[in-house]
């Protein structure tokens, strides 16, 4: 039941991506700094993409019978 905490805070990452874009587009950085920021941004966006791709579709239903938590796959019935 315990889920591994994902390190990536997606919302935070998106904010960072925007900041990097702004800094890069501003053009005030040296070439070295620009390349560094560029790499940082590309890495982060890849991380976000991987995060999205790694997620797995799961539709489950919890069954609360006292202390024990049970979970099973759930398929909605048609009317």
């Amino acid at each position: 039941m315990e889920e591994k905490k994902e390190e990536l805070n997606f919302e935070e990452a998106m904010k960072q991506l925007e900041e990097i874009a702004n800094v890069l587009e501003n053009g005030n950085l040296s070439l070295d700094e620009s390349v560094n920021k560029f790499e940082e941004g590309m890495k982060l966006s890849k991380k976000c993409n991987d995060f999205l791709d790694q997620a797995e579709k799961k539709i489950t239903m919890l069954i609360n019978d006292g202390e024990e938590i049970k979970e099973e796959n759930f398929v909605p019935k048609a009317d």
Partner: peptide, 13 residues
């Protein structure tokens, strides 16, 4: 699932 095919939905009935 249409918006995100990899979503995890946990139903508590």
């Amino acid at each position: 699932t249409r918006r995100n095919p990899n979503v995890h939905i946990r139903l508590y009935p």
